[in-house]
Write a protein that binds this DNA or RNA. Structure first.
Lengths: 233, 233
DNA sequence: TAGTGGTCTAGACCACAGA
DNA sequence: CTGTGGTCTAGACCACTAG
């Protein structure tokens, strides 16, 4: 299988993946060291390194100094999940986006928000609820708390025109975020806003983001019935 | 901000990220080219390249030959979602894993499975339903179709002992997969299996995987009430 | 067609963890 | 200690694409 032609790190990547898929190298097996592979495949070690590094980050390989590189025993595959601004997600479906601010209030947060963001109950926060629509139909209901200490300029934003979701993406980059996906039965109020029936199963996304150690915002995003979030591996 | 000390690609990564976060470089801005940055930061271009490449894959930068590198206008953040074997997910929570095969049958697939996998209605497939338990309680109900043409050896697997989920991970590596997350109301049958009430909102994960162009398996994973899938950015 | 990122190389040194 | 991966470098050529 050796070749004398010019190789790229992707060729190496694919070749190694092929050997894993054909079970030439089985889960748990030790594979040749970088120098050997480079020789076998006729390329520089750096090239092999790049390929193996990618494969490790994709979950196919376990690499440890001195111990060498092994085929992962339990390939924990890592899916990629794009988190775009809601507007772009809707427009990406070829639908018309609209947005309405339902409610905005400056106040101290309830206990669960304090717990999420790690702030005190006396924090100065903005509480915003809004509705995002696709082709005129309710698409997602957003219930968000924003720390004013962390992003004071949000008070100047016109949240009638730009959603908090989008404003934050543009003005408050975060360093770290948590997302939880789950399913809940619609409450009476939620059903009314999303124009569905109470008890209907709804897809819920809860996001909290931080800038370093400072909590910025915590949001509860409730999607209209039928929503499916896609991800690829 | 320049320094004479030894730099690593991570320092460059962090420094660029800092400039983005402090809005020294704003969304849409063109940033210095690799050679210039390398000079400024006192390292080799390859080092800068590695840093910027990572930042681009994280969604912070847009890079195009000749056009240069820009701060992403709409940072589509890419969350990492680990897709482990169910057993490991449960054991990772410190709970005891158990598994029961409910049903197994060799037959031709229904239309929706054909559509998912891109196979014909006459395909030879294995249809398996099973229940995964955590600490003795129903955790996830799995309804899976496996292409026998793609993975003939699954007929030799003892699916009473090892779940199809785990067997496939070990024996049928895939090159590509789709995942859809959604929320559904429990049917009467589903409620009974998961020991909950009909209509309860359940988290649903639908996965289809391919080896190159060949469909391997399509599964419907229905989680017990209260399940939350976590992801981090 | 010229400018920018994408990649490759050969060699070097370092850092970590096995034995 | 020693072997392995992790990273850096300087230089080179290539590939894509904006102007």
């Amino acid at each position: 299988m050796n070749s004398l032609e010019q190789q790229s790190w992707q060729s190496v990547h694919d070749e190694v993946l092929r050997r894993i898929h054909t079970r030439e190298w089985k889960p748990g097996d030790l594979i040749p060291k970088e120098v050997e592979l480079a020789e076998q495949l006729g390329c520089a070690r750096a090239t092999v390194n790049r390929a193996l590094r990618e494969l490790a980050s994709e979950g196919f390989l376990d690499r440890r100094r001195k111990a060498g590189t092994r085929v992962a025993a339990h390939p924990v595959r890592r899916a990629k999940l794009d988190i775009p601004v809601i507007r772009l997600e809707i427009e990406g479906r070829g639908q018309k986006y609209a947005y309405g601010l339902l409610f905005s209030e400056r106040r101290t947060p309830p206990p669960e928000i304090c717990a999420n963001l790690g702030v005190t109950a006396e924090s100065d926060m903005l509480h915003i609820t809004s509705l995002h629509l696709a082709d005129g139909k309710p698409f997602m209901f957003e219930d968000r708390w924003v720390s004013i200490a962390a992003t004071p300029t949000i008070l100047d934003a016109d949240l009638e025109k730009i959603s908090a979701n989008e404003w934050l993406v543009l003005h408050a980059p975060y360093t770290r975020g948590d997302i939880y996906f789950s399913a809940v039965n619609a409450s009476a109020a939620e059903a009314k806003v999303l124009r569905t029936d109470p008890g209907t199963s709804l897809f819920l996304m809860e996001r909290t983001t931080w800038e370093n150690q400072t909590g910025i915002t915590s949001a509860r995003l409730l999607f209209a019935p039928g929503y499916r979030k896609h991800s690829a591996i």
